[in-house]
Computed example of a mutant assay.
Amino acid sequence: MAPRPHSSQSGLSVQSDRTVAVHRSLPEEVAVAMVFDGSSAAVMMATPADLQDFATGFALSEGIVTAPDQLDGFELAEHPNGLEARFWLREDRAEALAARRRFMAGPVGCGLCGIDSLDAAARALPLVGDGPRFTRAEVACATDRLRDQQPLHDQTHATHAAGFLLPGQGITFVREDVGRHNALDKLIGAMARQGTDASAGAVVMTSRLSVELVQKCAIAGVTTLIAVSAPTAHALRLAEGAGMTLAAFARGGGFDLYAHPHRIIDGVPDVA
């Protein structure tokens, strides 16, 4: 059984006029080894919740598998120093694992820490499909709607979230983690396990838009990526090349639109 995703901790609140004792709920962060066929592919620092979604999304977004039915026999094993998220691979996918080997023990802020070559970091991205359209209003309020569905953040004020926005329906999936790319892997895994087509909606993030987020979304088939903060210049270049729409600074009733703006429209949302 995984540890609780948060715990109560004592501290002191030091203000200009007083110092008082406080008790705060803080997010837990543990080492999670992604183990496939008995071999560790990566070690990620993550929030210990939705770990089957996390491992599934990681395997999909890293190209270890191309569909969730290529993974079998999930189990979670506790160790003194962390957790193992274990899967067995279909035989033909073992070669993909060997080709995509990563050893990661990096901070949660960097999804590319530990990649074993510059070529792996610069992997070619697939061209995403046409995808749905969204109204300006849907995009402008997307991060607010995501914020309404973040119970772990409500308790800790210290986690990121990734949500899935369907046109005309709002946010339908949300996953949280201390790491933004971990939250996205959890979201991708959750949708894949439930048979939800990632190309049918947009991903909404509580973070900046960095290279690994664009890479993961493109591999999942996501056509629109919305975030509360800025994209990096290289993330924007990757999105341009992949045919993906980027909407950044989505807060306060507005947003900046970068790359392939044709998916953001006025009027009634496209629910087809």
Rank of each mutant, 00 (worst) to 15 (best):
E78F: 06
D270L: 10
A200R: 11
D144W: 01
M205E: 01
L125I: 08
S229W: 10
D270F: 02
S210G: 09
Q9K: 07
N182H: 05
G168D: 08
T56W: 04
R147N: 11
D69K: 07
G131T: 01
L209C: 14
G131E: 01
F255E: 02
I264Q: 03
A42Y: 00
L257W: 04
T159R: 00
L127N: 06
A192I: 06
C110W: 11
G38Q: 01
V65I: 15
A121H: 07
A202C: 11
T232Q: 07
L166Q: 04
E28K: 08
R86M: 08
L187M: 07
S10G: 11
A142V: 04
F36N: 00
M45F: 14
L76D: 00
S210K: 05
R175E: 12
T66C: 02
P5G: 09
P5L: 08
R263S: 04
L213K: 10
A31G: 05
G63E: 01
G201L: 02
A124H: 13
V268G: 00
A96F: 03
L125G: 01
R193L: 15
E91W: 05
T143R: 08
R193T: 06
T196I: 15
D144N: 11
R18I: 06
A49W: 06
C217A: 13
F255L: 00
A120Y: 00
C110G: 10
T232Y: 06
I115T: 15
Y258S: 12
E62C: 10
S229H: 15
E138K: 07
G106R: 04
L165K: 04
R208W: 09
T66H: 09
D69E: 15
L187H: 02
V65Y: 02
E95F: 14
A41D: 10
V22R: 07
F87S: 09
T47F: 07
L146A: 08
G73K: 10
G111L: 06
H157M: 12
D53G: 04
H153W: 12
L166A: 11
A55Q: 03
C217L: 01
M244R: 03
S8V: 14
G106N: 05
H6L: 06
D37R: 05
L127S: 12
M104S: 15
L83G: 04
M1K: 10
H153A: 08
G114T: 07
P68C: 08
V128L: 10
G73N: 13
A218F: 03
L51E: 00
A259R: 10
R123C: 08
S13Y: 12
I264H: 02
G63L: 08
C110T: 02
T143Y: 04
G131S: 05
A162G: 03
Q215R: 13
L165C: 05
G129R: 11
Q70S: 11
R208Y: 14
L76S: 05
F36P: 01
P107K: 05
V32I: 12
A233S: 14
L238A: 10
M45R: 14
T159K: 02
G195P: 12
D256E: 08
G195I: 10
W88P: 02
E78A: 12
A120G: 12
V174G: 02
G179V: 05
F164P: 00
R136L: 07
E62Q: 15
F87R: 09
